[in-house]
Computed example of a mutant assay.
Amino acid sequence: MTFKKILFYTFLVVALAACGGKKKASAKKKKYYHKPTKTTEQVVTAPEVKEQEEILTATSTVVVKTNTVEEYINVYKDIAMVEMQRYKIPASITLAQAILESGSGKGELTLKANNHFGIKCHTGWTGPSVTHDDDEKGECFRKYKYPSESFEDHSKFLTSRGRYGFLFDLKPSDYKGWARGLKKAGYATDPKYPNKLISIIERYELYEYDKLVLKDTYELVVETVVADAGETIHVVEKGDTLYSISRKYGVSVESIQKANNMRGTNINIGQKLKIDK
């Protein structure tokens, strides 16, 4: 074999080897190659968050919107009890007034001024104010930054004016006496104001907050009315039964039933019963 042939075959072998190496390398590369998959951005929407009720402590500065009377009571009961401890005003009265005056927190004056008790500016008020139509058009009412300020100012308002002084001689559990006394002192012009307060207190059992504050010193005030004709009238309180009433006045259950044309023994809170002795 000539030198040229040897050189030719050598070149051919090298070329084939190189070609095979490329194919193997290509095959090897193809073996580990993964075609990228098409991805889409996943959009996650947050679940609808419902407005949650925030519980307001006596020193809180949070403004809370309430939808029901029960929610309003739950939010402001702690403030009312603290105010009772500080100023001796029954928590039941404070809550009932706030519910009535503020429309359970939904009244126009409350929403725009955080005024939960309808307190007008009066002489000497130097704080913020708003105008609001009440007994007259465009009257001046006090404005507060936070509801808690309104509750505290309500307590100061009652304790700093002499015309309300007699109320503090009442037993702190006597919410009926307080309700009537507020009307007598001129807090409101509505002749039904005391009955409205009493109705709210008894409907929502706000006197229970008075009990929490007074604890062992709580004393139930049983109201007895003596009519002009000399007959005794008992106003039914929570927990009363015909038997307990009969024992109180030393009469029989039957005599109470007869005096009030009753067939059964059912009685209701606030009901007036004649007591014939």
Results as ranks from 00 to 15, higher is better:
193 Y>V: 03
193 Y>M: 01
193 Y>Q: 00
194 P>T: 02
194 P>K: 02
195 N>L: 13
195 N>I: 08
195 N>H: 14
197 L>Y: 01
197 L>R: 03
197 L>W: 02
198 I>H: 03
199 S>I: 07
200 I>C: 05
201 I>W: 03
201 I>Y: 01
202 E>R: 10
202 E>T: 15
202 E>S: 08
202 E>N: 11
202 E>P: 06
204 Y>E: 07
205 E>G: 14
205 E>V: 14
207 Y>S: 04
207 Y>K: 12
208 E>I: 12
209 Y>T: 07
210 D>P: 06
211 K>T: 07
211 K>P: 01
211 K>L: 04
213 V>M: 06
214 L>R: 06
214 L>F: 02
215 K>P: 03
215 K>I: 11
218 Y>C: 05
218 Y>I: 03
219 E>L: 09
219 E>V: 09
220 L>V: 13
220 L>Y: 14
220 L>N: 11
222 V>I: 15
223 E>V: 11
223 E>P: 09
223 E>Y: 10
224 T>K: 10
226 V>R: 11
229 A>V: 10
229 A>T: 13
230 G>R: 03
230 G>T: 03
232 T>F: 00
232 T>P: 03
233 I>Y: 04
233 I>E: 05
233 I>F: 04
234 H>D: 01
234 H>L: 03
235 V>I: 15
235 V>W: 01
236 V>L: 04
236 V>H: 05
237 E>Q: 13
238 K>D: 13
238 K>L: 11
